[in-house]
Design a protein around this nucleic acid. Sequence first.
DNA 1: CGTAGATATTTCAAACTTAAAATATTTGTG
DNA 2: CACAAATATTTTAAGTTTGAAATATCTACG
Lengths: 164, 164
Amino acid sequence: MNKSEALSERAGNETSDLSKARLRAWLQILKVSRKIEGELREKMRLEFGSTLPRFDVLAALYRERDGMRMSELSKSLMVSNGNVTGIVDRLVAEGLVVRMPVENDRRASIVRLTKAGEKDFAERALVHEGWVSDLFSDLSSADADALIRILRNISHHNEAPHHD
Amino acid sequence: MNKSEALSERAGNETSDLSKARLRAWLQILKVSRKIEGELREKMRLEFGSTLPRFDVLAALYRERDGMRMSELSKSLMVSNGNVTGIVDRLVAEGLVVRMPVENDRRASIVRLTKAGEKDFAERALVHEGWVSDLFSDLSSADADALIRILRNISHHNEAPHHD
DNA sequence: CGTAGATATTTCAAACTTAAAATATTTGTG
DNA sequence: CACAAATATTTTAAGTTTGAAATATCTACG
C-alpha cells in the first residue's frame, strides 16, 4: 500500500481509491460480458435456433470426445448439478447428446455427443468464433494478450480451494 | 493485418490467430465474470438475504434519487422490460422501492427508493465494494486501469446505435 | 454381512431472464 | 374529432439458474 492509499484509508469505513478502481473494473467486466452475451444469444437463436447454455455444454463435450459425467460437466461449466440435468435433457431430446451407463457405478452416467451433435457443433463453433471476432474487432492482439493475462491473475486468485 | 495473419487466413473458412486470441479473451472474460458473480451472489444471499439483480436495481435508483421509469431502468441495466417488472415487484413487496404515477402520462410509472431502500442500499453498497476489492485483491491499480481501458474500447464498439 | 456415511444425480420451488403477445395510453395526421 | 401508429408497461410461455431436498447407489467399517 503506498502513501496516498494509506492516507485515504485512515478512518475505518472509507474505501480507498484502489478499492474504487477495482469496483469500476468489475462493473466494466459485467457490462462487456452482458453486452456480448446478449449479442451472441440473439445470433445463436436466429442462426441456429439454439441457446448459449446448450452451446456451452456441446463445447465441453466436444473437447472430451469420450464423454463426461454430469458432475464433471457442471464443474467444468461452473454451474450447479441440477442446471446441467435440464440442459442435457433438452440436448438429448434434440438428438445431439446421449447418456450412457457407467461400468461399475449405476449412480453415474456419462454424457457424449452423438454423430449429429459432433457435426452440428463443429459447424456452430466456426461461426461462433467469427461472431466473437467481429464483436471484439477493436481488440488488438496485444490488448487481447494483456486482457487474458490480467483476467487469469484474477481467476487464479479465486480458484476454488481443492479438498484434501 | 500483418503478414503472418494474412497468410494464415488464405482459405475461406480458416480462422486467424487473432480471431483465436479474441475468442480466448472472451472465454476468459466469461470465466472471471461467472466466478465473481457466483461469489457475490452467495455473499449477498448469506449476508443480506437478497440477490444481485435486486442489488443492481437498487444501485441504479440510488444514482437517480428522483426515480426512474421502468424503461429507463431496463435500459440502464441492459435487461428486458419484463425482467425489471418482476424485480421491482419484489422490491416493492420488501418495502425498498415504490412505484409512483407520472404526471400527464398514465402509461408510465416512476420507481423510487423508499427511505428504507436508501438506508439499506447505502449499507449494502459499502460492504459490496469491500467484497469486490477482496475478490480483486490481485488487481493492481495499473492493471485495473489497463483492464478498464481495454474493456471500454470493446463496449464502445458494441454501443447500441441510437435512433434519430 | 449389515449399515452408516459418502457420492452422483435428479427433483423441486423460487427466482431470474428473454422474446413475444397483450393491454393501456398517448401522439400525430387527415 | 377519429383513429392509426407509437410508446410504456405488464403478462405469458419457455428456458435457465440456484440451493436444498430426495433418490439411488456405492464404500468402508464394525
